[in-house]
Amino acid sequence: MLPRFWRKIKYRYDIVGSVCETCNTKYYPPRNFCPICRRRSSIKEEMFEGKGKVLSYTVVHDTPEEYKLEKPYIIALIELDNGPVITSQVVCSENEIRTGMRVKKAFRKYFEDGEDGIIYYGTKFVPDED
């Protein structure tokens, strides 16, 4: 897991994805190739602002081993403003989460690797409503 994780850290700590300048489609995670334009792709890196709304969500009770201590946690598909859809955790209460809810990015711990004691960080989302 570790080398795979470190290679992608830039894209996880901030929401850095891609835009295809040929068709203006935005991608997260980043792609080297636009599935719509294929050979005519013109890919550039783009940082997304990190605000958006919840498209769908689930409260996860049956968790993988590394997330045992977090349970239950919320997984959501978030549609970023002027951007792509991202899969992420939302940090709020089970009663608060709903579709359409405005959220913004936050830098948070994901999990700790028990064997090596390495802590994995990344982007999560928190409510962004006044």
Binding site: R4, F5, K8, P29, S56, Y57, T58, V60, D62, T63, P64, Y67, E70, Y73, I75, A76, L77, T87, S88, Q89, T99, Y110, F111, Y120, G122
Partner: peptide, 19 residues
């Protein structure tokens, strides 16, 4: 890397479709 890492299990992904 982009679903499993954040804790999106297979049941969780189907739950997103169901919702």
């Amino acid at each position: 890397e982009w679903e499993g890492f954040v804790g999106a299990t297979i049941p969780a992904l189907y739950a997103l479709m169901a919702r």
